[in-house]
């Protein structure tokens, strides 16, 4: 599993300034968006951009059809994509899992191969053939929900695979639930909505959109306020702690005893 580089400094002196700047940019951007979403949203379904769908069709035929079939019907190399929806395509392509590089226990994350527009085009194309879960909108993703509720839902629904601190965990036959540190809110939402591979689907009856937002809020909270007690050793729990004490604790102590009993010369 690729490890994210440790954050060098938890609170840089300029952090507040940067945060305010980001906040301003978001509100400004949000305002600008709001004025235009009304128009954008109405035509998502029907005409969104026939051009985008056409573009997606070309990309799909070139990159995906060998496995998923020309009309999403699937093949021996890949499942049918009828009804998976734009959210699934956005998740799979946006996180680099698709196009599948090689058959294995599970599709691995890799640097995405397509630009955002191309991903959007693929999603539009797949959604245009049969309806399915849509890509979540920005206001479903804001991390300002109820972290407590999110935490409880996370412990009950997700921790058995992803670990309580979202550090990831093993499943059977080489499959695994990845670490959730640094995963984009959009992909967290889409993962719940579409249940990629061995992850169950948490549809909106199961975990409502508000609950999903709460889970995102919780995950973002523990990532942004991480490790109160010092470096977190990867949040891997007692195994990491035990290795640490044996290597560095006992190592240091033995080195010191050797030093103390060395003959002075």
């Amino acid at each position: 599993m690729a490890r994210k580089p440790a954050k060098a400094n938890r609170r840089h002196p300029l952090a507040t300034v940067v945060l305010i700047a980001i906040g301003l940019a978001f509100t400004g951007g949000g305002y600008a968006l709001f004025t235009s979403t009304a128009t954008a949203q109405t035509d998502t379904a029907s005409s969104t951009s026939q051009s985008s769908v056409d573009e997606g069709k070309k990309l799909f035929a070139a990159n995906c059809a060998t496995c998923h079939g020309m009309s999403l019907e699937g093949s021996t190399a890949g499942p049918a994509l009828l009804g998976v929806g734009a959210a699934s395509v956005d998740f799979q392509v946006g996180t680099g899992r698709m196009p599948l590089a090689m058959q294995g226990p599970q599709a691995m994350e890799k640097p995405p191969q397509f630009t955002e527009e191309q991903t959007q085009a693929l999603a539009d194309y797949v959604a245009s053939l049969s309806p399915g879960p849509a890509i979540p909108t920005d206001d479903q993703l804001t991390a300002n929900g109820n972290a407590t509720n999110g935490g409880e839902l996370f412990r009950i629904n997700c921790a058995m695979c992803h670990n309580v601190a979202g550090a990831g965990g093993a499943l059977t036959e080489g499959k695994f639930a990845p670490s959730l540190t640094g995963v984009d809110s959009k992909y967290i939402y889409e993962a719940m909505l579409t249940g990629p591979q061995n992850m169950p689907v948490f549809n909106d009856h199961n975990i409502t959109p508000e609950d999903k937002r709460d889970i995102i809020t919780y995950l973002k909270y523990i990532q942004n306020n991480d490790s109160t007690g010092g470096y977190d050793l990867g949040n891997l729990g007692p195994v990491a702690e035990g290795l640490f004490i044996w290597i560095f604790g006992i190592g240091a102590v033995v080195a010191l005893t050797v030093w103390l009993t060395a003959k002075s010369n």
Partner: peptide, 25 residues
């Protein structure tokens, strides 16, 4: 170095079990 961040684990409740649950070494 942080050890046993109980706030991450949350209170005990018999239903959830976390991945990577281990005893001390």
């Amino acid at each position: 170095f942080q050890i046993n961040p109980i706030w991450n684990y949350g209170p005990y409740d018999p239903s959830p079990v976390s991945a990577g649950t281990q005893p001390d070494w």
